[in-house]
Amino acid sequence: MSKRHPIIVVTGSSGAGTTTVKTTFDAIFRREGVSAAIIEGDAFHRYSRSEMKLAMAQAELENRHLSHFSPDANEWQELAQQFRAYGETGRCKTRYYLHNESEAAPYGQEPGTFTAWVDTPVDTDLLFYEGLHGCAKTATVDVARHVDLKIGVVPIINLEWIQKIHRDTKSRGYSREAVSDTILRRMHDYVHYICPQFAETDINFQRVPVVDTSNPFIARDIPTAGESMTVIRFRNPRGIDFPYLLSMIPESFMSRANTIVVPGGKMDLAMQLILTPMILRLMEIRRAQMQ
C-alpha cells in the first residue's frame, strides 16, 4: 500500500462484469480530474492462446488442474512486483493481451498474443487494475497487500455464467459448447483462487437477478438491470453514511449492518456515491504526502 502512489483494484471472475464497472471508474476519474495508469489483468497471463492449449493438454495428461484462473497459468509474482513498483515510484510496466482481430490489427499481431511490455505514463495520480486476480493471495504470493482500495464484482454464479456465455459467443467467436466446457473445467480453480479474493476486498458488488436463471446454459438473454438487485457489502462499514445512501437511492434498504441493497438499475449511481469520496480521500492523502 502507498500513500503517495495509491492502487485501486476491481477484481472478479470472467464474465462478472468488471469491465462495466471500469466504465464507472473512468467517469469518476474524468469528472474529478484524476489521472490513472491502467493495468488489465489479462496482461499477466503466462501463456499466449496457442501456448495455453499446449499447456492444458500437458496438464490433462499429468492429471493436473490448469485454467486461466490457476497460479500456473498466471504471472502473479510479476503482478505483485509491478504493484510494488508503482507504490514505490509511481510507475510500473504492463502490456496487452489481444483477444480478437480488432484488438490485434493495430499491432500487426495475431489474436491471442501479447504486446511488448511498456512503462506506464509519468505523473499519474493512481494505478487502476481491472481483471481476475487483483486480490490474489496464496502461500507464496500476496498481491492484495499492495492495494489501497479493493473492489469485488461478484454476480451470483448462474448470472455470471450467463454473462460469460453471451460475451464469449457474441464478442469472441466461441461456440456455446466451448464456453460451457471452459466454465466446467475452471470450477476447481474458481473455488480455490477466485472466491477467496472476496474475503480480501473492501467492497463487494453482487448483482442478483429476480428472474429465473436456474439453467444458465440455455438462457436466451442476460437479465437486465431492471430485473436485478445489487447487494453491496462493506468489509468495514465504519464511516459509511448509510442514511445518506438510503436517501439518495430510491427503493434501497439495508439487509445487514454492513450491507445495502439497491435496485439493479441504480448500481452505477450507488458506485458513484460510494466510490467518489473514497477516491477523493486517497487523492487528499496523496497530496499531503507530496508536499
Rank of each mutant, 00 (worst) to 15 (best):
Q82D: 01
K137T: 05
L149K: 02
R220K: 15
L269M: 15
A116C: 12
F83S: 02
H45P: 04
Q58G: 12
D241R: 11
T140Y: 12
E62L: 15
V122N: 11
V147T: 04
T224L: 09
F69A: 01
E160Y: 04
Y174N: 12
H65C: 12
H188A: 11
T94C: 04
F44G: 01
R281V: 07
T140P: 10
K3N: 13
L66R: 01
E75I: 12
F242I: 06
R31L: 14
I279P: 01
K150V: 01
R95K: 14
E51D: 04
A116Y: 08
T213C: 10
A73G: 02
A16R: 00
M248C: 10
D212I: 07
V153E: 00
L66Q: 00
Y107A: 11
L98Q: 00
M56C: 14
P111E: 05
M283V: 03
F128W: 08
A178Y: 07
T113M: 03
Y96G: 10
H133V: 04
N100L: 05
D181E: 06
Q77C: 11
I8K: 00
L184M: 14
Q58M: 14
E177G: 14
R281Q: 13
T19G: 08
E60V: 13
R30H: 12
R185Q: 06
F69D: 03
M278R: 07
T115A: 06
G108A: 03
L275E: 12
K3P: 06
S14N: 14
I240D: 03
R30S: 11
Y47F: 13
S13E: 05
T19I: 06
Q291D: 12
H68L: 15
T169D: 04
E110W: 10
D189W: 03
Q77W: 14
E160F: 05
Q289D: 08
T113C: 07
V154F: 12
V34I: 15
R46H: 05
L132Y: 00
M56W: 09
M248K: 13
H166I: 13
S180M: 14
N100D: 07
D168E: 13
Y96H: 14
K22Y: 09
R4Y: 11
A139P: 08
E88P: 10
H99T: 09
A144F: 03
R207A: 02
M1W: 09
P277V: 05
R95H: 07
H68V: 06
S228E: 02
I156E: 01
N158H: 09
G17T: 00
H188M: 12
E60Q: 15
G131S: 02
V141M: 05
H5L: 01
E251T: 15
S13N: 07
R235Y: 06
L127T: 00
S252Y: 05
